[in-house]
Design a protein around this nucleic acid. Structure first.
Lengths: 233, 233
DNA sequence: CCAAAAGTGTTCATGGTACACCCATGT
DNA sequence: ACATGGGTGTACCATGAACACTTTTGG
């Protein structure tokens, strides 16, 4: 490649945005921020950042997660969606957005950090108009999550160490955007043998009736996923 | 964004590579080229090209398909895989590869064009060592195709207007990398109601016994795919 | 007459879906 | 007493998997 050609092609900027799905035990929601500077100052956008020429995208997403939500690496599922490459998606010039999504369980610490950073949560099915092509990215992310949730137990990343079956079901209903039968749901979940009773129960003060708490059996999942295990739904 | 920052970030190059799957009625194979210049001169690579600052990736892939195989737009399935973004994947500098795959049925015209361009086909399960991270891209493409083929009748893009059930089965066996039962396969295919008998048969000179030819019912597929139809396998 | 490929049904196991009531507790 | 949410079992149907023989025809 000639120097002339190099000058011609090496003019693109790279950024990564993150569709962060959070679940608080009841609602599934997505994190957005209000832009403080141009372009699209005041508009809502996904968390994201430009990537330096010698920086990795994966690393940038990790940094973003630490900055924005002080996340726990081991409990977070992260995956690249795809590149969004439209020529005029950013008025600054040609910017390629390599978008990711992540699944996290929301804790009071995260909620606090998000508030301090000025982040806003929007319900999974009520996403407002976002700047750039970010609505397109969110749409794509939602479809990907829907598919993933059907085949791999990624949903567990959105729940705390301990959870009730009702919480798990609620999560699946939100992600799949349809209601599920309680008995059938329990049957599937227990047949998968991927969850373990912890022996604990919910706090009797919070609900009329206490319910059993479960946790995800990661060890069993590791074994199963080696041979291309399909989850359910 | 300051000019300084602009100068810092707008230094990346963008390219797209294509994993082209071709099926000739018997074998499923992938197209590669030998590099004529540095870096990795003499090495095997996927077809690909750099993307100009104001050019679209999709358009570039179309151009690539026309250049390399003189393809028929309507009979070709194309989809973005993802961005390959490792920092040091290209010695020229930071180059992001937004990779695609395409499925085409091979015709004598295509074979001729490929030969004229110096292209080489390699069987789906015998891909040689490629330059850059192209083996990784191929691997990713194979997994994507495997999944797609299970759920959507993309396989039809790899077959001519008319095909025998045996050819269709052979294609699925190659893509899924396992043998399928002939009777079960026919049952599934016919139950899907997505293929139509054309009334024609294979040339009696070519085989011991003639067999019926079928075609894909695109109209019916359009209707089904509107409501998130799942194919089979 | 034999090798090669086309074509054809049945049985069984599994998993999905539909569906309704009792229990414990807090108000 | 009643409202709220936790917990439980059965029957039917659709789909997937296993499995063997007959037919045609070219060599």
């Amino acid at each position: 490649m000639t120097d002339e050609e190099k000058a011609k092609y090496f003019q693109v900027a790279l950024c990564s945005s993150l569709v962060l799905f959070g679940f608080d035990g009841e609602d599934l929601k997505i994190l957005v921020y209000r832009k403080l500077n141009d372009p699209f100052k005041g508009g809502l956008v996904l968390p994201g950042k430009f990537i330096g020429v010698t920086d990795s995208n994966d690393q940038a997403i990790h940094e973003l997660l630490i900055e924005k939500i002080a996340y726990d690496e081991h409990q977070t599922y992260i995956e690249q969606l795809k590149a969004f490459t439209k020529v005029f998606r950013n008025p600054l010039g040609r910017v390629i957005n390599v978008a990711y999504y992540a699944l996290v369980k929301l804790t009071p610490q995260i909620e606090e950090k998000v508030k301090a950073q000025g982040g806003e949560w929007y319900a999974y099915d009520r996403i407002p108009d976002l700047a750039f092509d970010h609505n397109e990215i969110v749409q794509y992310a939602k479809e990907r999550v829907k598919r993933r949730v059907k085949r791999r137990p990624v949903g567990f990343n959105l729940l705390g160490d301990e959870f009730t079956i009702a919480q798990l079901q609620s999560l699946y209903e939100k992600a799949l955007n349809r209601e599920l039968d309680k008995r059938n749901f329990r049957k599937k979940i227990f047949n998968s043998n991927l969850i373990i009773e912890t022996g604990n129960t919910t706090d009797p003060k919070q609900h009329r009736k206490v319910s059993k708490l479960y946790r995800f059996d990661e060890e069993k999942y590791e074994k199963l996923s080696l041979k291309g295990y399909d989850f359910l739904f």
